[in-house]
């Protein structure tokens, strides 16, 4: 793989019908840059969850608003930034999702953010209500232990 940073930018209309297309693009890029099938499926699902949240919550199913996807790849990681210009969200007030609590109460929805955090190495939220909301997700090619081993070599 090239040591240069690669950047892909996409603007996709906010309809659930496009989730399949988004997954195809993300998984194709992740596979092409060398992630194993297991990591490809994790990245694909995390981005699906982020975009589904934008469609359902940020734009309240108001169709055909833009979802901006920026994919950046460097020698050690793949980063995906999902940006919307919807109603925004105060992430500082976001309750920590307790999965046991969700299951006990059989609450529908709200599990997407928990999944994103479980599937990716880093997840960061930034919201400027009325302007834009961003979710940045990162997956490293090598995990921590593997990085140490790679350095020793």
């Amino acid at each position: 793989m090239s040591k240069d940073k690669m950047k892909y930018q996409l603007k996709i209309p906010s309809i659930t019908d496009n989730l399949e297309l988004i997954r195809m693009i993300i998984s194709t890029v992740a596979e092409k840059v060398g992630f194993n099938p297991d990591d490809v499926s994790k990245i694909e699902l995390a981005v699906d969850e982020a975009c589904a949240n934008v469609i359902k919550h940020a734009y309240s199913k108001n169709q055909l608003q833009p979802i901006d996807l920026v994919i950046e790849i460097d020698y050690k990681k793949m980063s995906i930034v999902v940006t919307d210009h919807g109603k925004g969200f105060d992430f500082t007030k976001m309750p920590q999702t307790d999965v046991k609590e969700y299951l006990a109460e059989m609450r529908v929805g709200g599990l997407g953010i928990y999944l994103m955090k479980a599937l990716m190495d880093e997840v960061e939220f930034n919201s400027h209500p009325g302007m834009k909301t961003q979710v940045k997700m990162v997956k490293y090619f090598l995990k921590n232990g593997e990085l140490e081993l790679a350095k020793e070599k």
């Binding site: 989730l19 699902l45 969850e49 299951l103 529908v108 929805g109 599990l111 997407g112």
Partner: peptide, 16 residues
């Protein structure tokens, strides 16, 4: 072939 949390949510919505 594939499932996201929206699919899992369907089961949660009916089980009770």
């Amino acid at each position: 072939i594939y499932i996201s949390s929206a699919g899992l949510g369907v089961f949660m919505g009916f089980i009770e």
